[in-house]
Nucleic acid binder design. Structure first.
Lengths: 118, 118
DNA sequence: ATTATATATGAACAGATGATCATATGTTAG
DNA sequence: CTAACATATGATCATCTGTTCATATATAAT
C-alpha cells in the first residue's frame, strides 16, 4: 500500500487527536472481517433470504420458491450466509433447514431499514 | 426473473406461514435500497473512513493521510458515503469537512463488530 | 442395488466495483 | 488576473461477484 504523507499543508485537527484516532482504530484484520460481514448483507437476494428466516426456519426449496429463484442460486447464497455465521443449518433426512444464527442479524437489518426509511 | 414454482414435492412449513412471509416482506425497492446501503459498509476503506469520523469531523486530506491513501481514492469513497447519507459535508474556505450523518452508522458498525468478535 | 428427491458445488460468463491517473472545479492569496 | 492549494470527477483496468448450467453428493424408498 502506497503512503501519502503530509497531503495537507497544515492539519485542521490537533495532531494529538489524529494520533488518538490511529490508536483507536481496530486492527487491519478486524476491519477487513467487518467489511466482509457487511458485504454479505450487501446483496438483495441474501437480504431477502434473511427476511424470510425472520419468521421461521425453512428448507432450501421453500426459500427458492418464496423468492422465485433457482435451488442452485439459493444454495450458493446460503453457503455465503453460513460462512458469515449469519445462518445455521440442521439436516432432517433429505431436507436441510436453515435458520438465523443470532439476533445481530435482526438488529443490523433493523437499523439499516430505519436509516433508509427516514 | 424466472419463476420456480413448486420446487419441493411438499412444503415443510404451513402454506399459511409461507403466505404470511410473502406479505411481511418489504417491497422490492426497499430491499434493493437496503442491500445498497450495506454494500456501502462492505468495503474496508469506507469502514475505516467511518471509524476515524467517529472521533471528529475531518477534511479530505487528513483522512487520506490517516489512512495512507490518495486524495482521489478518499474523495471517491466520500462521495459514495455521502450518497448513502452516511456522512455529510460542510465547506470552510478551500477545505471540506466530512462528518457522520447520524447515529445509525455507529449502531450498525457496533453490531457488526459484536458479531465478528464473539 | 436402483431410482428419486433434496441439496451442494465447480466452471464459466456478464456485470459491478475500487484504485489510479489525468484533469477539472472551487476557493483564497497576492 | 494568476498562482497555489483543496477537492471532485471521468476514464480505464484489474479484480470481484452472482447467476446459470451441469453435475456431484446425501438420504430415503422400492
Amino acid at each position: 500500500m502506497q503512503e501519502y504523507p503530509e497531503l495537507c499543508e497544515e492539519h485542521h485537527v490537533h495532531p494529538d487527536l489524529l494520533a488518538h484516532m490511529k490508536l483507536e482504530m481496530p486492527d487491519e484484520s478486524s476491519l477487513y472481517d467487518l467489511a466482509e460481514l457487511f458485504k454479505v448483507f450487501g446483496d438483495s437476494t441474501r437480504i431477502r433470504i434473511l427476511y424470510v428466516l425472520f419468521e421461521s426456519e425453512l428448507c432450501v426449496c421453500d426459500i427458492a420458491e418464496l423468492l422465485g429463484m433457482s435451488q442452485s442460486a439459493i444454495s450458493h447464497q446460503l453457503r455465503v450466509l453460513k460462512q458469515a455465521r449469519l445462518v445455521r443449518a440442521r439436516r432432517e433426512g433429505k431436507t436441510v433447514f436453515y435458520f438465523l444464527a443470532d439476533d445481530h442479524v435482526r438488529t443490523i437489518i433493523g437499523q439499516g431499514m430505519e436509516h433508509i426509511t427516514e
